[in-house]
C-alpha cells in the first residue's frame, strides 16, 4: 500500500513532528482547527515496539540498545486520501489524530492545519528544547587561571 502522492520531505517533517508531540496535544489542536472528517481504518491503532539501535563508539557497528513503545495506524478519508501515523508511546487517540492530520494535509485543509496544528506543535517543541538548552548553558564552566603563587 505504497502511497503515490508523497510530498516526501515535507511529509517526513510533519510526521516526525507529530511522533514527538506530548500526549493529547495533536487531538486538541486538530479539534480546535476543524471538524473531523469521516474515515475508514486501513489499520486500526496498534501498540507495539521498535528496537532502537545505537552504534559502537557512535560511528561503528550497530547494536541493539533496547525497545521503545510506538503506536501506529492508517486510515482513508472518503475522498481516498490515506493517512499514516507512527507515534511514540501508547496513545491510540493520538495516533488516530496524527493519521487524520497526515491525510488531511493532502486536502484543501492543508493550509489551515499547517497554521493551527503543525506550526504550534513546532513552536512548542522548539520552546521546550530552547529552555533546556538555556538551562544547560547556565551550567557551562567558565575556567579562569589562578594567580601563580611562586613569586
Amino acid at each position: 500500500m505504497k502511497d503515490t502522492t508523497d510530498q516526501t520531505p515535507d511529509r517526513k517533517a510533519w510526521m516526525s513532528l507529530m511522533a514527538k508531540a506530548p500526549e493529547g496535544r495533536i487531538a486538541t489542536l486538530l479539534d480546535a482547527a476543524l471538524t473531523r472528517p469521516d474515515f475508514t481504518w486501513l489499520r486500526a491503532p496498534e501498540i507495539g515496539s521498535v528496537m532502537v539501535r545505537g552504534r559502537a563508539g557512535c560511528t561503528g557497528a550497530p547494536f541493539n540498545l533496547g525497545e521503545m513503545t510506538v503506536t501506529r495506524c492508517a486510515l482513508t478519508l472518503t475522498n481516498g486520501e490515506v493517512g499514516h501515523a507512527y507515534i511514540q508511546g501508547r496513545s491510540k487517540p493520538d495516533a488516530e489524530a496524527a493519521a487524520l492530520v497526515d491525510a488531511l494535509m493532502f486536502t484543501d485543509a492543508a493550509a489551515t492545519l499547517r497554521t493551527k496544528v503543525l506550526e504550534p506543535l513546532e513552536q512548542e517543541q522548539t520552546a521546550r528544547r530552547t529552555t533546556r538548552a538555556q538551562k544547560a548553558a547556565a551550567t557551562k564552566v567558565d575556567f579562569f587561571t589562578m594567580v601563580r603563587g611562586e613569586d
Binding site: 507495539g48 515496539s49 521498535v50 528496537m51 532502537v52 557512535c58 513503545t69 507512527y86 551550567t139
Partner: peptide, 19 residues
Amino acid sequence: LPRFGASDPVDTGDMACDR
C-alpha cells in the same frame, strides 16, 4: 508487544545535550 521493526542507529552526535 508486536515488534514493528528496528530503528536506524541513533546519531548521538546530534544529541541535544543537557550535560
